[in-house]
């Protein structure tokens, strides 16, 4: 690494020469644009930036970035990114995944990357449907969902990605949506600034197989009443005039309240840095789905030793203790004898 100033770049510098081939109107376009416009602001280098993806519509993302990238296999991106991040702490490693990729076939890798707190930034494009395979239900599809593979309705209880991440000991957990570039960029910026594993769930519209899945909460006219912005240290309020809020009465169950009724002091103050993930988890359960007022923003942002740093420290410690490795001594370490 040199001290030469990071060159000033624009969105164009971060876009590859490949034609973007998502369906017209896909929410992925706005997420790609948000990233390509944000990265020039982060003061990072293209050569030190890597996007790793699995399989799915979102997984095409790396091909459209003029950075290093790998479009890998279904569900394995967090594992591949882990190997890269722990051996190359100098890199910014982003994982682009979807609800099927991250939560179905790749669920195991996702939870363990979060648990280990590897320095990777996971963007989870959640459209609640399988797009690339043309419209089967996903692990985040709502119960009763009628799809090609569930003509009589899905029987399955969906995953709540925020709850899953918190249960997996994630140190940074956030949610945003594809209709609000500014909010997306703020979440991505925060994720990037976090040392450790960060996951950002992005409600993303699949206009072909699940159009309007999030309209009830992310539609321009609905947002004020249906999205609950989480801001650290601030009372959790929403509505056009902040007239509604989240409160925790004595029974410990979160409730949506009219602020005027309960009084401002009764409104819960968000604390994303709280070590105990209980409150963040409760917030993640506030909404049963994107048809009720739903929190967005940073649920949790806490510090814990980063995995690759710990690994590097063990190497340094071992060298200080034993000196640099000497192969000849190693081969003789089990005792030797000499002939002749």
């Amino acid at each position: 690494m040199t001290d030469v100033a990071v060159p000033i770049t624009t969105r164009k510098d971060w876009a590859s020469d490949q034609e973007v081939r998502w369906c017209p109107g896909c929410g992925d376009y706005s997420i790609l644009a948000a990233i390509q416009m944000l990265l020039p602001e982060l003061g990072v280098r293209r050569e030190n930036t890597v996007f790793v993806s699995g399989i799915g519509c979102a997984a095409r993302f790396p091909y459209y970035m003029n950075t290093y990238g790998m479009h890998s296999i279904h569900g394995r991106a967090p594992a591949i990114a882990t190997g890269l991040a722990v051996t190359r702490p100098d890199l910014d490693v982003w994982v682009v995944s979807g609800d099927g990729d991250a939560l179905s076939i790749g669920g195991n890798h996702l939870i363990h990357a979060l648990r280990r707190n590897v320095n990777i930034k996971i963007l989870l494009f959640n459209n609640q449907i399988y797009g690339l395979t043309k419209g089967q239900y996903s692990p985040t599809s709502e119960q009763g969902k009628v799809t090609k593979s569930t003509p009589f309705g899905s029987l399955e209880t969906p995953f709540n990605p925020i709850s899953v991440a918190l249960g997996a000991e994630a140190t940074f957990v956030a949610r945003t949506h594809d209709m609000d570039r500014k909010h997306m960029q703020e979440m991505f910026r925060r994720a990037h600034a976090h040392r450790g594993a960060a996951i950002v769930e992005i409600y993303q519209n699949c206009n072909v197989f699940n159009d309007g899945a999030f309209n009830a909460i992310t539609g321009r006219d609905n947002r004020a009443d249906m999205l609950i912005p989480l801001e650290h240290g601030q009372p959790i309020r929403f509505g056009a005039d902040g007239q509604r809020g989240v409160a925790m009465p004595a029974d410990g169950r979160l409730q949506l309240v009219d602020v005027a009724e309960v009084g401002e002091d009764a409104v819960l103050v968000h604390d994303e840095a709280r070590d105990d993930p209980g409150l963040a988890f409760a917030l993640s359960r506030l909404s049963r789905g994107p048809f009720e007022p739903t929190p967005i923003g940073v649920f949790r942002d806490v510090q814990r030793p980063e995995y690759g740093d710990g690994m590097a420290r063990q190497l340094v410690d071992a060298q200080e203790r034993k000196g640099p490795g000497d192969l000849a001594s190693l081969l003789a370490s089990g005792g030797t004898w000499t002939v002749g």
Binding site: A79, A81, T82, T87, N108, M311, L315, L327
Partner: peptide
Amino acid sequence: KNFGVRTLQAEDEIAGIGTAIGAAFG
């Protein structure tokens, strides 16, 4: 580790090779 060897006990066999592929890319 004093030889600079990094070992990672992965969550499963797939992650074993997955992390190795990531390290190879790096």
